[in-house]
Amino acid sequence: MQNRMRWVIQFVVVALIAVAAAGGWIWLGQAGNGDDADGAGGRGPGGALPVEVARAERRQVQDTVQAVGTMLARESVEIVTEVAGRIVEAPVREGQQVEAGEPLFILDQVREQADLREARAQRDDARNRYRRSVALYEERDVPEAEVDERRAALESAEARVEVAESRLRDRTITAPFDGIVGLREVSPGAYVEPGTLLTTLDDLSVVRLDFSVPERFLSGLVPGLDVQARSLGYGDEVFAGEVARLSSRIDPITRSLRVQAEFDNEEGRLRAGMFMTARLVLAEREALMVPEESVLKEGTGSYVFVIVDDQARRIEVTTGRREGGYVEVTGDLADADDVVIAGLQTVRDGADVRVLNEGEEGDHGDMAAR
C-alpha cells in the first residue's frame, strides 16, 4: 500500500513539472511574437528611439572660491594696567560704546597728586629764582654763571613736573579708540599689578573676515572683489562685503594666501570671533551651459548626444562650473543645439530618434518635472 501511494505522488509531481514547462514554452513564444509585431521593443515608427531634449544655451556664470574664516574687529585691544594700584572707579558699563580718550578705570591717585603739587611748587620756585637772577645779571650784580645755574634748575624742575603728570595720567586708563567695552575682569576696590587684564575694547563699526585662498587663484585676487558671507547664527542670510587687503606672502605649508574682507556693521550684528563661510566672486563671464543630466561620463572624459536630422550624434565635451542644475561645457557644441536629457539608456551614436517634447526644448524645468 505504501509503495502504491509513493508511486502516485511521484506521478503527480512529474505531471505538474511537465505542465509548468509547457506553459512557460507557450508564454515565451507569445512574448516573442509580440516583440516582433511591435518592431523594436518600445521603439517608435521605423525603429526610432524616443528621447527628450533640452537646448544648450549661453549663460552668465561666476568663477568663485569657497572658503571659511573668522570674523575680526577692525580694531581690537586688551585693556591692561601699566602700574600697580587699587581701582577706585569704573565709570563705564560693559557693552557700552565709548569714544577715544574716555576713562575706563581710575586707580587711587592720592600719592601721585601730592607728588605733582610738590613738583609744581618746586618748578614755580625755580622759575622765580631764575627770573631774579636774570634781572640782577642785567644790572651786573650777579655773574652769568649764576644765571645759567638758575636756568638749569628751572629746566630740571619742569621735567619733574612732566614726570609727575605722567604718573598721574597712568592712574587713569582710557580708551585708545572708539569702540565697545567688553566684559569687565575686575571690580572697583581690587588691587591690580602691572599687566593685569581689565577688559577688552573692540571697534565693530566695520568688521574684517580673515580667510585663506589657494595659491592657484592668485591671478584673480585683487582688492575690491565682492565677498558673500554666511553664519550659522543667521541661517541663510547673506552679508555682502569686499576684499580689502591681501597678504604679501604665500604660506609655504598650506600654499594659500591670507585674505581680509571688510563688512559694514553699523547695526552691530556681526561679532569678532564668528565662524563664517565665504564665497568670493573672482570673475563673471559667459559660458555655454547644458542640463547636468545630459552629460555622460566615460573613463576620464565626458560626452553628450546632440540631435542632428533626427539622429543622435555623440560629441565629446569638457565640463566646467556647475550652477542651478546646469553645467558648463566646451567642445564641438554650439548655442541652441538640442542635447538628449531622457532616453539616454538606449541611445547610441548615429541612432534614429524621435523627440517627444518637440517645441519645449528650452524649458528645462518642465522636462525635469515629467
Score class of each variant (00 low, 15 high):
residue 151 R to E: 12
residue 236 D to R: 14
residue 194 P to V: 01
residue 119 A to H: 09
residue 345 Q to D: 15
residue 273 G to W: 02
residue 257 L to W: 00
residue 193 E to S: 10
residue 281 V to C: 04
residue 119 A to W: 04
residue 198 L to G: 03
residue 6 R to F: 08
residue 10 Q to W: 13
residue 366 D to N: 14
residue 73 A to R: 05
residue 71 M to P: 03
residue 270 L to F: 03
residue 2 Q to M: 06
residue 215 E to G: 06
residue 15 A to M: 14
residue 44 G to A: 12
residue 144 E to L: 14
residue 286 E to Q: 15
residue 142 V to F: 04
residue 301 G to V: 06
residue 75 E to T: 11
residue 192 V to C: 01
residue 80 V to I: 10
residue 165 E to D: 05
residue 51 V to G: 05
residue 58 R to A: 09
residue 113 Q to R: 15
residue 305 F to R: 03
residue 256 S to A: 07
residue 67 A to P: 01
residue 369 A to D: 07
residue 191 Y to Q: 11
residue 258 R to D: 04
residue 197 L to A: 13
residue 200 T to E: 02
residue 8 V to T: 12
residue 115 D to F: 07
residue 105 F to I: 02
residue 346 T to Y: 14
residue 147 V to T: 09
residue 251 D to Q: 08
residue 296 L to C: 02
residue 237 E to T: 11
residue 121 A to R: 15
residue 24 G to F: 14
residue 23 G to S: 11
residue 12 V to K: 11
residue 12 V to G: 07
residue 173 I to R: 12
residue 210 D to G: 01
residue 89 E to F: 10
residue 186 V to A: 08
residue 124 D to M: 07
residue 204 L to E: 04
residue 233 G to P: 01
residue 101 G to D: 00
residue 335 D to C: 04
residue 165 E to V: 02
residue 253 I to R: 15
residue 358 E to G: 07
residue 335 D to G: 08
residue 350 G to I: 13
residue 145 A to K: 13
residue 364 H to F: 15
residue 16 L to E: 10
residue 13 V to Y: 11
residue 21 A to S: 10
residue 320 G to E: 00
residue 103 P to R: 08
residue 154 L to F: 12
residue 237 E to G: 00
residue 48 A to I: 05
residue 336 A to K: 15
residue 272 A to V: 02
residue 71 M to L: 15
residue 348 R to S: 09
residue 79 I to D: 03
residue 186 V to G: 05
residue 58 R to Y: 08
residue 322 R to P: 00
residue 220 G to N: 07
residue 51 V to E: 04
residue 9 I to R: 10
residue 361 E to S: 13
residue 65 V to Y: 05
residue 282 L to Y: 07
residue 80 V to E: 04
residue 2 Q to G: 14
residue 126 A to Q: 00
residue 132 R to H: 04
residue 217 F to V: 03
residue 232 L to T: 09
residue 218 L to C: 06
residue 83 V to Q: 06
residue 152 A to N: 08
residue 70 T to W: 03
residue 37 A to N: 12
residue 22 A to R: 12
residue 57 E to Q: 15
residue 322 R to Q: 09
residue 190 A to H: 05
residue 101 G to T: 05
residue 226 D to Q: 15
residue 233 G to I: 04
residue 367 M to S: 15
residue 239 F to P: 03
residue 247 S to T: 05
residue 32 G to W: 05
residue 53 V to N: 05
residue 14 V to Y: 09
residue 139 E to S: 14
residue 31 A to G: 11
residue 345 Q to F: 09
residue 189 G to Q: 08
residue 97 Q to S: 15
residue 85 G to L: 02
